[in-house]
């Protein structure tokens, strides 16, 4: 297939996934911000900006990370290239460029979302409306993802589009962990009060894993098990391990179809092997923060390798 087409499909999926992740982060932030604020507690809106990876861009426009500013910046701002609005715009632009590679259902999903986005104007008029908006973004992504899964031919178009989803998802899960890692560190002084519990639950909620956690561990929420679930458990769909099972699988299918392995395949396998061979205790010993930072970098490098090998 055309390299440009593959590139458009890959980015189309990435942008849809990114919009969904932003909506998830904001939904959880909204929930946390309604809790009584304990002394020394972090500003939830600030950490939402950090998780979205745009602290610098944000501080150029706004002085204060409060609900209004962050909502505007992460959802509707045209100045923020990664705002939900821009993600949907970019996704639709990419989709339009590759109409021929999309199924009717996929096009309907993304074009319908883009048309509906106008309904929200420059922002919601109330908190209720804002929550509806966030649900809508997630449902739109589910609809797009579902139509891709159900209607696309299983060929390189599909594999490149899946690659986009999982590289983006891995990045997002890693970022959530990166911003909140301090909450997960074992701290003898802290007993795990109700506020901690809410914070931990919020992390799980942001990746739809609160129920899953209980199914997997059958015990109270413990910070190191959260790390275990989100990093190493490949049965957990948004975990780093699960993303890498999928990344390796899709890259292998591409390599098999084209009859050639390359740096992208090798790079992906290296990361998966590292995840497979890690144990959560060791990760904590060697530093959770460093581990996640290394992962984000490696994931980013893999993205570049995919681009060089196939998309240009």
């Amino acid at each position: 297939m055309l390299s440009r087409t593959a590139d458009n499909l890959y980015w189309l999926s990435r942008y849809v996934e990114r919009a969904e992740c932003l909506a998830r982060i904001l939904e959880v932030t909204q929930r946390l911000s309604t809790l009584p604020i304990a002394t020394g507690a972090t500003n939830e809106w600030e950490s939402a900006v950090a998780t979205a990876g745009c602290v610098h861009a944000f501080s150029e426009v706004y002085d204060e990370a409060n609900e209004e500013n962050v909502t505007e910046f992460l959802c509707f701002s045209t100045a923020n290239p990664s705002s939900i609005r821009n993600c949907i715009e970019m996704a639709r632009t990419n989709a339009r460029a590759v109409r021929t590679a999309l199924t009717v259902e996929m096009w309907d999903a993304i074009n319908g979302t883009w048309l509906e986005l106008k309904r929200f104007g420059n922002g919601p008029s109330s908190r209720e409306e804002f929550m509806r908006f966030l649900r809508w973004v997630q449902e739109s992504s589910l609809r797009f993802d579902g139509s891709a899964y159900r209607t696309m031919l299983r060929n390189d178009s599909y594999w490149f589009s899946r690659l986009g989803v999982f590289l983006e998802r891995a990045d997002n899960t890693a970022r959530i962990l990166d911003v909140k890692y301090h909450l997960l560190l074992p701290d003898k002084e802290r007993v795990g009060g109700p506020l901690d519990y809410f914070q931990w639950a919020a992390i799980l909620r942001s990746v739809s894993a609160l129920t899953a956690y209980h199914w997997v561990y059958k015990e109270n929420v413990q910070p190191w098990l959260i790390a275990d679930l989100l990093i190493l458990k490949d049965e957990m769909p948004r975990s780093l391990a699960s993303c890498y099972v999928n990344i390796v699988e899709n890259l292998d299918k591409i390599a098999k179809a084209y009859g050639r392995q390359g740096p992208a395949q090798r790079g992906a396998r290296d990361i998966r092997t590292k995840l497979e061979n890690s144990r959560v205790e060791e990760i904590f010993q060697e530093g959770l923060h460093e581990f996640i930072e290394d992962f984000i970098l490696a994931n980013h490098k893999l993205g570049s390798a995919v681009t060089e090998q196939y998309l240009m």
Binding site: S3, R4, D156, I254, L311
Partner: peptide
């Protein structure tokens, strides 16, 4: 058939090629 833009094609030895993932 492929929908190409100018940048997807190039000419080498007086023949036309398209840039593909393969």
């Amino acid at each position: 058939i492929e929908l190409v833009e100018g940048r997807d094609l190039f000419v080498k030895n007086e023949s036309v090629f398209m840039r593909t993932t393969e």
